[in-house]
Write a protein that binds this DNA or RNA. Structure first.
Lengths: 233, 233
DNA sequence: CGAAGCCTTGATGCGCCTCAACGTACGTGG
DNA sequence: CCACGTACGTTGAGGCGCATCAAGGCTTCG
């Protein structure tokens, strides 16, 4: 457990609007831990023992089906809450959370949730706002899967990743953590083969650049056109 | 606005565990209204003015895409909360809510949410538990759409409807409100044609009975086998 | 240096959408 | 009450989108 300074985290959204003294108090109850790439933070169906905030890195949240298929529910970026089962009265985590890169994670014992929610209502409100946004995003994904073609969904997924986590480079916007074709296929309900073909085609067309575990968006608007469903260009 | 007796609603889940006097208080602030079949309770992107509990009937919650496709997010059964945007800090409703049969709906002004949540924490907790369950169900739907074939999804949808809202008849379990092929296709991300074909086949095989806007599940376990993904029987 | 992980590209086929046409129940107004 | 329009349902024919199967190349790491 490392020491934490309130000023380091006062700016991140979940803590927005909280009194400084409360922040310090809340932090004193938290544990900070480093997770190397690939390490699991929590596991699907495991008893929900803690809730978390990601201070640095990227976390992949994955659901596993009974017959072994994986579906990536979302990527968590730094500054975001995750594993907040307690806030929703869930006894178990509904998915796996795995570090997609080296991460720093802040955690509180789940048993503290009720106390925290009562004592720091601003924090609770912020949390529920996050839940609301995620619920909407998840609904959007349902709509997407139900109505759009693979090509659109993949374009969309890449655009979102680029917007959320992208880092500007000379070539364009680079997705800031290693991501495979397989990963993208698990976000979009398709196969790595199809994703590979699409990326190849888009690379030829000059919309993206891609290497092993790396994707750079060079022509975002053109990708957006594909995401909108207009066939080709 | 009709008069309401606390005993009429004390048993429904959102009010579970609330003191009787609080119940009466909370009820006194509510409005009760009747909605005939097809009438809209609230509209997607409309400002969230109220939150609701369904006392009787069935409500269909539908998302509309920019290009006019409809996706049925869920059906609300009696005793359930809906339109709880305020609890999640959302300013607008994310979908349409339409009466699928004659309904009775209880509603509170959205501006009351904060006060209600503070004064009746049990009610708030119950609400957030509901949100948690719905978030999980929505995630499940994503997984389903991403990994299962149409046949499985349709079987699953019908089974769920039968379990949630089914009424026992001599033939089996009847889905308790009028539902079209189109409705089912909008729940499962397919077309009414495919649903029609599947139902025809299942009727021939003796798994279901179906008439206009009516579906009865006669052999639930066999349907469940199909939902599990085993081809045919 | 070998093994494992990641990526690519072709060939093949089938699941399901699309297009099309028609039958049937419902309810509304004359 | 019947006639007609509309909503709902069925079933066929055709074809496309994408999964699946298959094989091989390249990169990373122990």
């Amino acid at each position: 457990m490392s020491l934490l300074d309130a000023s380091l985290i006062a700016d991140i959204p979940p803590f927005q609007g909280m009194k400084r003294e409360y922040l310090v108090e809340l932090l004193s109850k938290a544990k900070s831990e480093r997770y190397e790439n690939g390490r699991t933070v929590f596991t699907q169906d495991e008893e929900a023992h803690s809730f978390f905030i990601l201070l640095d890195g990227h976390i992949r949240v994955v659901r596993i089906t009974p017959d072994g298929d994986q579906v990536i529910a979302r990527y968590i970026s730094s500054g975001e809450l995750f594993g907040i089962a307690q806030a929703l009265g869930l006894e178990r985590y509904p998915a796996n959370a795995v570090a997609a890169v080296e991460c720093v994670v802040l955690s509180w014992p789940g048993t503290l949730w009720n106390m925290v929610a009562e004592k720091y209502p601003t924090f609770a409100t912020n949390t529920y706002r996050t839940v609301g946004i995620r619920l909407q995003e998840t609904q959007d994904k349902v709509v997407e899967l139900a109505t759009e073609r693979v090509e659109q969904r993949v374009a969309n997924a890449i655009l979102k990743l680029a917007n959320q986590t992208g880092r500007k480079t000379e070539d364009g916007i680079l997705i800031d953590f290693p991501i495979t074709r397989q990963d993208i296929s698990e976000m979009t309900g398709t196969t790595l083969h199809t994703v590979s073909r699409l990326l190849s085609a888009w690379e030829t067309a000059g919309l993206v650049k891609s290497e092993r575990k790396k994707i750079t968006v060079t022509e975002g608007h053109k990708l957006a056109v594909i995401a909108e469903g207009k066939r080709e260009l």
